[in-house]
Nucleic acid binder design. Structure first.
Lengths: 228, 228
DNA sequence: GGAACATCGAGAGCGGTGCTCTCGTTCGGA
DNA sequence: TCCGAACGAGAGCACCGCTCTCGATGTTCC
C-alpha cells in the first residue's frame, strides 16, 4: 500500500530541504559556532519561530548537518576506492579522497572531527553515517588479507581491545588478521584524521613545507604500518 | 633599575588573575563554546563592561586560556620525561602523561586540539607554548639517535618536506635522522593527538573495549614506527 | 599639597541570539 | 462540510558580546 504523499507533506519536505540547504551554506561560510538559526530562517524567507516547526532546536539542525557531512565524506571515500587496484594504491587513493573532501569543506570537517558542539554525547543517529569511511578502509584491509598480501599474524595472541563488531568491519575473520593488526588498523584510521586535523587546524604551520607531499608520504607510512 | 609596581598595577594583575581563574573554571564546566564573558564577570563580582578593561574581547580571553592550556600540557609532558630511561620508555611515559592531562581537562583539550574557535588563524603568541610537547618528543628522538639506538638512515634522500626549524627540534643533525625519519616523527606526533581526539570526542565508542590498554599498544606501535 | 591626568567600575543601551507562546489562517481527513 | 492538526507570523523573554558615558579613585607632576 504506497500512500501518496499529501501536498502538505511534499511542501514540508521541500521546506525542510530549503532549511538544511541554507544551513549548509551558512556552515560553509561562517562555521558551526557562528551558525545562526535566525539567519538561516531569514535566508529561506521565514520568521525564526517557524523553523522550530521543522527542527526542535539549533542542535538538531546541526545534527542533521553532521549526518549529511558524514554521508558526503563517506560517499567520497567509497567513490575513490578501486577494488581491483593493489591494497596500497587503494589505501592511498581513499586517503587522498578524504583529504580532498576535507580541504574543500573545512568547516564541515571541523564539525565532524573537531570539538563536539552539543554537550558531548554524540547523537546515536550519526553512528552509521560516521562509520562509512572506516568501512571502506576495513574492506581494503580484508581484501588484502584474503588475497594473501598481508603477512601472517605472529600468533602471539594478546588480550583483545578491539570490539567484535569493529573486528568484523576490519576484514572479518582471517589468519592474517589478529588483534595486533586490528589495533594498527584502528591507529592508522585515527592517524589519518589526526593528520588532517593538524593540517586543517594549523598545527603543522611552520613544520610542514609541502602539505601535499607530506600527506602522501605519511599515508604511505601508515599503509606500511598495517602491512599494505 | 627595578621599578616597584604601583598599587594599581598590583591590583590589576590580581584582578586579571581572578578573571582568568574564573574563566578557566567556567571552561572546565561548560566548555569553550558556552563560555560567557558575562558569567565570568558575575563570578568575580564585576559588571560585564568592566572585564573589557582587562581583555579587549571574549576571543582574547579565550586566547589567554589557550596559552595557559598549552603551557599546562607542556609542563605535564616535560615532568613525565625521564631522560635516563630508554627512549621507548620515555616516549610511552610522555604519551601517557599527555593522555592523562587530556582526560583530566577534556574541555581544555578540546579548546587546544579541537576546532579552532576564533576565525581560523591561530594567534601567533600561542606558538611557543603549543610547541612544548613537540619539543619533548623531539628531544627523545634526538637522544635516541645520539645514543645509537636508531637505525642508520637508508641514505635514499627524498626531497624534504619538514622545515629546517622543525628538523632542529626533532633532534637536530645526525646521520640517523634523515627526512624520512622526520616525516615519521611528525606523523607519530600528530597520531598521538589523533588518537586522543578520537577517544575524547567519542569516535572510538563501540570500537575500543579497553581504552587504557588500546592507548598503550597504539603508542608502542608509534614508537616502533619511529624506531624507538 | 594640590592640580591635571589616566585608570577603573557601574550603568544604560544596542543589536544579536535561542527559544516559547499566542493567534489567525490554511489544509486534510472524516 | 466541519473539525482538528499543521503552519507562519509576531511579540516577548532571558541571555549574549560589545560600546558609550559618567562619576570615583589612583598616579604623577609642579
Amino acid at each position: 500500500m504506497e500512500r501518496m504523499p499529501t501536498a502538505r507533506e511534499r511542501v514540508r519536505a521541500e521546506v525542510t530541504a530549503e532549511i538544511t540547504d541554507a544551513a549548509r551554506r551558512q556552515l560553509a561560510e561562517v562555521g558551526a559556532a557562528a551558525l545562526s538559526l535566525r539567519a538561516v530562517a531569514r535566508d529561506v524567507g521565514l520568521v525564526s519561530s517557524a523553523v522550530y516547526r521543522y527542527f526542535p532546536s539549533r542542535d538538531d539542525l546541526l545534527t542533521r548537518l553532521i549526518i549529511d557531512g558524514y554521508d558526503a565524506l563517506g560517499a567520497a571515500a567509497e567513490a575513490a576506492d578501486r577494488p581491483d587496484d593493489a591494497p596500497r594504491a587503494r589505501w592511498l587513493a581513499v586517503c587522498r579522497a578524504v583529504r580532498s573532501w576535507a580541504l574543500g569543506h573545512p568547516h564541515e570537517y571541523a564539525l565532524l572531527y573537531g570539538s563536539p558542539v552539543p554537550g558531548y554525547a554524540a547523537p546515536q543517529d550519526t553512528v552509521p553515517a560516521a562509520a562509512r569511511v572506516g568501512v571502506v578502509l576495513g574492506r581494503i584491509l580484508g581484501d588484502a588479507a584474503r588475497s594473501g598480501v598481508l603477512p601472517e599474524g605472529a600468533g602471539k595472541q594478546d588480550t583483545h581491545v578491539v570490539s567484535r563488531e569493529t573486528a568484523e568491519v576490519l576484514g572479518g575473520d582471517h589468519p592474517a588478521l589478529d588483534d595486533a593488526v586490528r589495533v594498527r588498523a584502528l591507529l592508522a584510521w585515527s592517524s589519518v584524521f589526526g593528520t588532517l586535523s593538524f593540517e586543517l587546524f594549523g598545527h603543522f604551520v611552520g613544520s610542514v613545507e609541502d602539505a601535499d607531499r607530506y600527506f602522501d608520504r605519511a599515508m604511505t607510512e601508515l599503509a606500511s604500518l598495517i602491512g599494505l
